[in-house]
Structures are given as C-alpha cells and as structure tokens.
Amino acid sequence: MKLNEWYKDIFREASNIAMSHALTSLSEMVGGPIEMEPPDVEVLSRVEFLKTLAQNGISKSFVVAFDITEGLNGITVLQFPTRSAINLSAALMGMDPSGMEELDEMGKSAITEVGNILISVYTDILAKLLGGAGLPEPPPKPISSLYDIEKELNRPDLRNVDKIMLFKTRFYEENIGFESFFYLVPDETSFEKLVKRLEAR
C-alpha cells in the first residue's frame, strides 16, 4: 500500500510526537543528550514488511517483538541493525564501541529494556490518538528469523493484516550514531480507527 504525501505527513506528525517522548526517556537512560533525525514513515504491505526486515539484516540484527492490547491491538517489532545495537549498548554502559564486535548478554538485556521503553512510549502516544491506552504485553519475544515473524503474522487476529507502519529514525549521542526500525502491526480494526482519528486532527 502506498500512501499519498498528505497521509504520510499525518503519520509523521504522530511519530514525531511519540519519538519526542521516547527521546526523553532514552536520554535519561544514556545519561546525556541525544539528538535525532526526523522519522521517516512508510505504510508497508505484508510482503514489503518481510522484505524490509530481510534487507535490514534480520538475522544479524537485534530484534524484539511485543504484543499490544487496549486502544491498539496487534504487535510491535523493534529492529536495531547489529552495529546500531552495539553502539547503543556501549552508550548505555559508558563503553567505547570501537572494539566491540557483538552483543554480550548484558548488552542484549540493556537493548531489550530500551526496546520496551521505546515501544511503550510509541504505542501509548498512538493509542491515545484513539482515545485509549495501548501498552506492550510482557515478556518481549526475541526474533531471529523471518520464520519467527511469520508465526506472529499467522495468528488469527493478524492473519489478514496487510498494512504495517514503519517508523525509521537515526539517533546521535555525541559522535555515536545508531538507527532503529520500529514496525507497528495493528489488526485491521485498529489501523482503520487510527487513520480516521488522524484524519480528524
């Protein structure tokens, strides 16, 4: 599905609001100021979603998924490409990322916590546009392959979904940069409600 620029601007505005709140939380975790580029927003088809995950290196990324309920219903997926995940974990732990080639368990735990916070803020802001509250349902689900994603998409509530929102942005902490890909996979009813509420703003 390709949206015209008017619709993309609406989703971009909502994403900017959500990301501004998330940025505050992330800055507090890192212990210093973080800047970001304006989010790039797309609405992908099911096939495009899987293709984008693959192109961004799902098997070499740090990827977690969370169920969401209330206000919005579906799943959210947060993907940090490997280098971005290493840079972010180094920033969180006050380390130099230049000598780090992979995430250890402590780094994975830190990134998972960041994912939980970012997704919580994103979904809460978007859900409030629907007049409710949408929060991730713990625990997070590690994703290591497209098969893991396809299992989620084959759930009864998501089986017919063909509209996935992608929010892509880059963050900067001093000279360290990292990017994230945040995918919102709402069920059909949630997507329609979200579009109608955004149109009315």
Rank of each mutant, 00 (worst) to 15 (best):
T69K: 02
M100G: 06
I149C: 14
E173I: 13
G94V: 04
I10W: 01
F11R: 05
N154H: 05
T69V: 11
D104R: 13
M165F: 00
N175S: 15
R155G: 03
I75V: 00
N56Y: 13
D96L: 00
P33C: 08
T76E: 07
N73K: 02
I176L: 10
S144M: 09
K128H: 14
R46T: 11
S15L: 02
P136G: 05
S84K: 00
N116S: 15
N87V: 02
G134P: 05
V41P: 00
F167K: 11
F191L: 00
V63Q: 02
I119M: 13
A18H: 04
S120H: 09
E179D: 04
A110I: 11
L166R: 14
A90W: 12
T189L: 07
K128Q: 11
L153D: 02
L118C: 05
V77I: 07
N56R: 14
L23K: 03
P136V: 14
P136F: 10
I149P: 10
A133F: 04
N73G: 10
S190P: 11
N16L: 12
E113I: 10
V41Q: 07
G74P: 04
A14L: 04
G115P: 14
L44P: 03
V121Y: 01
K8V: 15
I117G: 09
K128N: 11
L88R: 02
G177T: 14
M36T: 14
A18N: 04
L103H: 12
P142V: 13
T69F: 06
I17H: 05
K60M: 05
S61E: 13
M29P: 10
R201V: 12
